[in-house]
Structures are given as structure tokens and as C-alpha cells.
């Protein structure tokens, strides 16, 4: 099967039906290993046991941004290459990206209260992530507002590409502005500043969350293809009843 074959929804359904059980199994195993390692990881010398929140907060934040990145690539696929599955991929990624962004905000808030003394502060990092969640909700609303999936896809693609400007703002907000949120400690040009005893479980969780995102995204794409088939059949039935 070549890459171009994946442009055919029927072949995509057939391929993903074979791949998804393996992906789901690998995700479950890796998540179990990650949760075990997170439970066994030593406390931080300053933050104590609350550092365990990092094992879900950081992957959720990363996947929230990657979700928008996936949607941006798909938006290019819709607007430039007119790939048949591009808007399916974009529409399926939005609720998943929104869920990971929400997870990032909730876990960050619960980490902030004992460490900073507050659940929320309007600093650049937290605010830009909240903007990301609102953009996800805006794109989901836009998809639901326009009945025709092709027109909805183009409108959502434009909004997605405009919103992509927020991703580097989130990443570099802690460098550009003086924020309460700590600066980058994992993805740095000069290497991570985290001790291996905490970094290894974090990397396992990062891979597990990435696999989880991929599994959920492929499953949601399959649903979206089926939804379009249902829509086509509803229109055919309406046409038949109207005598066309």
C-alpha cells in the first residue's frame, strides 16, 4: 500500500482497522508503565511529591499544541492539495486537542495552587494556553455551524492557520515575558535540566500520550468518514422521497 492509497477513505478504513488494535494495546501497556514509573519516581527537592503532576501536565500541554500542529498541516492539505482526508483529519483532531489542552489547564491549576499559592494567574503562558483552548472550541463550533463539510473545512482551515501563530507564542512565552510559570526545562537547545530519575518516567509518559493521541485520532477519523457516509445516504433518501 502506497501513501497515495491512504487518500482513499475505504482503503484508509481497511488499514486503520488492522492497525488500531495494536496501537491501542501499545498505548495501554506504555501508559501502565508510565503510571508505575511516575508513582515510583522520587520527590523533587523543592516541590516534593507534587512533581508527580508534571508526568501528566507536560505531556497534556505538548499534545494540546501538537493537536493544533496536526490541524495546521491538515489545513494546508485542505487548502493547497485538496487531499480527501485532510479535512477529516482536521475535524477529528479538534476535540482531542481541546481535551488535552483542558487537561493541561486543569492539572496545571492543581499544581499551581500548592506551589504558587494560586490556581490561576493571567501570565503569558497560562493565558496563551487558555487562548488555545478557546480557539479549539471556536473551530469545533465553526464545523458545527456550516452544514456543507467542504465549505466548513475551508473556513476551519483558514481559522486554523491564523490560530497557528499562537503555538510559538505558547512555547516561547516563558522566554519573552517574565512569567510565574517556570521556563522550559525539557525541550531546550542545551539539553534537559531534569534529573534522569524524573526525566525517564516523563519521556515514557510523553511517548504514551503521543500514542494515545494517535490512537484516538485515527479512531475519530474513522468515525468522521462514517458520518459523511451517513450524510450522503440521508441526502440520497431525501432525494428518493422527493422523486429526483
Amino acid at each position: 500500500m502506497t501513501l497515495i492509497d491512504l487518500a482513499n477513505p475505504t482503503k484508509f478504513l481497511s488499514l486503520t482497522a488492522r492497525v488500531l488494535p495494536w496501537l491501542a494495546g501499545a498505548t495501554a501497556i506504555l501508559l501502565l508503565i508510565g503510571f508505575y514509573q511516575a508513582a515510583m519516581a522520587p520527590d523533587d527537592y523543592q516541590q516534593g511529591a507534587t512533581v508527580k503532576i508534571m508526568f501528566i501536565h507536560v505531556p497534556a500541554a505538548l499534545l494540546g499544541m501538537i493537536g493544533w500542529g496536526v490541524m495546521s498541516l491538515a489545513a494546508l492539505g485542505t487548502l493547497v492539495w485538496r487531499h480527501p482526508l485532510a479535512d477529516v483529519a482536521a475535524k477529528a483532531a479538534a476535540p482531542i486537542g481541546a481535551a488535552f489542552t483542558l487537561m493541561c489547564l486543569v492539572t496545571g491549576s492543581l499544581w499551581g495552587r500548592p506551589m504558587w499559592g494560586t490556581y490561576w494567574v493571567w501570565d503569558a503562558r497560562l493565558t496563551s494556553v487558555l487562548v488555545l483552548l478557546l480557539m479549539y472550541l471556536g473551530v469545533i463550533a465553526l464545523w458545527r455551524t456550516i452544514d456543507d463539510p467542504t465549505r466548513a473545512a475551508r473556513a476551519a482551515a483558514v481559522l486554523t492557520l491564523v490560530g497557528a501563530i499562537n503555538i510559538p507564542i505558547i512555547k516561547f512565552s516563558v522566554d519573552w515575558w517574565n512569567t510565574l510559570h517556570q521556563p522550559a526545562s525539557v525541550l531546550r537547545l542545551d539539553g534537559s535540566t531534569i534529573h534522569p530519575a524524573i526525566l525517564v518516567p516523563l519521556i515514557v509518559m510523553l511517548v504514551a500520550f503521543t500514542l494515545l493521541f494517535l490512537t484516538l485520532h485515527l479512531a475519530a477519523m474513522r468515525n468522521e468518514i462514517l458520518r459523511r457516509r451517513v450524510r450522503t445516504m440521508m441526502m440520497m433518501r431525501a432525494d428518493a422521497r422527493a422523486g429526483f
Binding site: T50, H57, M103, T107, W111
Partner: peptide
């Protein structure tokens, strides 16, 4: 801070 950690994992 156990309550915060448990709540964060439960929410996730």
C-alpha cells in the same frame, strides 16, 4: 499536597 495530586490524576 496529596489531594491536589490525586485530583489531577483523577481529572486526567
Amino acid at each position: 499536597h496529596a489531594a491536589f495530586i490525586v485530583t489531577a490524576y483523577a481529572a486526567a
